[in-house]
């Protein structure tokens, strides 16, 4: 009896320790970046152009770069992903073709961002001659977040009770009327979650954008201009030792943006009672 209690006490101690270590580590990481970074963030930093490759000045064009890349990527990926999710959950009962499509979606979700980068570089930048541009970067990002949107939307659609569909169909509504007027509105919080998760991923991505959007430190005025998002700017600042203060500040801005977006995603998901993934 004593031995068993000792084993349990030791095991629980280790488990408790692993939890404490994990959360302490995370608190340390987030706290460190935010505190160090916040000290260097001011209005001027957010709204002025960098000088001397980023050694001086602000990060205005990279904030715009991040927002534009993410925005255009979502414009491409959200309609495609939601439509695909609708097809998979409402329009088909399975079969070999659907299994292959699902395999493709799961695979896309696991492919590392550097591969999306290589692909974008070879196909979008070079083969389609889109060049290093907002468009190339956004398409690469869109493909990357597509599986997130499809999975999350599908999950949301699946939580819509079948009663609603039956009631609508029994009133003589068509499949599409049922989907667009009853099922999608009921699944809307889940779709919002999907969009938030996708934007969080897009905002935080570096490698895929690096190989496709170039990295020019100026404002993009068209889809064909190159651009540099905050993530890439942070990499240059840190790896080339340009300015530690500005690196901290950039990391903090990036972190705040990503955390806000993910918090919204978590909020909508919990409100909707969906499963975590």
């Amino acid at each position: 009896m004593k031995k068993r209690n000792l084993a349990q006490r030791t095991a629980f101690l280790l488990i408790g320790a692993s939890a404490v270590i994990t959360f302490a580590l995370f608190a340390l990481i987030l706290g460190y970046v935010l505190i160090k970074g916040m000290a260097n963030i001011n209005w001027e930093f957010l709204t002025t152009y960098p000088a001397l490759m980023g050694r001086e000045g602000g990060i205005f064009p990279t904030i715009i770069g991040t927002l534009v890349l993410t925005g255009v990527a979502l414009l491409i990926a959200v309609p495609l992903g939601v439509a695909a999710a609708i097809y998979l959950s409402e329009y088909t009962k399975g079969g070999i073709g659907i299994r292959i499509i699902r395999f493709a979606i799961e695979s896309l979700a696991g492919i590392p961002s550097i591969i999306y980068g290589l692909f974008g570089f070879a196909f979008l930048v070079t083969f389609l001659k889109l060049g290093f541009s907002v468009l190339s970067g956004a398409i690469a990002l869109a493909l990357m977040v597509l599986p997130i949107i499809i999975r999350t939307t599908e999950e949301a659609i699946r939580t819509v009770p079948d009663d609603y569909r039956q009631a609508s169909l029994a009133l003589g509504a068509t499949r599409w009327q049922t989907t667009s007027r009853v099922v999608l509105p009921a699944a809307l919080p889940g779709v919002v979650t999907a969009v938030m998760l996708a934007s969080g991923r897009a905002v935080g991505e570096t490698a895929a954008v690096w190989l496709t959007a170039g990295g020019a430190l100026k404002l993009p005025f068209s889809l064909h201009d190159p651009t540099r998002p905050m993530t890439l700017h942070l990499y240059y600042l840190a790896a080339e030792g340009l300015s530690l203060e500005r690196a901290y500040a950039t990391a903090a801005v990036l972190l705040v943006l990503v955390l806000v977006v993910y918090s919204l995603a978590i909020f909508f998901r919990q409100k909707f009672g969906m499963k975590r993934r």
Partner: peptide, 17 residues
């Protein structure tokens, strides 16, 4: 939720740290 948020930290931030 803290864990979910940690999954959100961009890899370049981890590299920087």
């Amino acid at each position: 939720p803290c864990i979910s948020l940690l999954a959100a930290v961009p890899s370049v931030v981890y590299g920087f740290l």
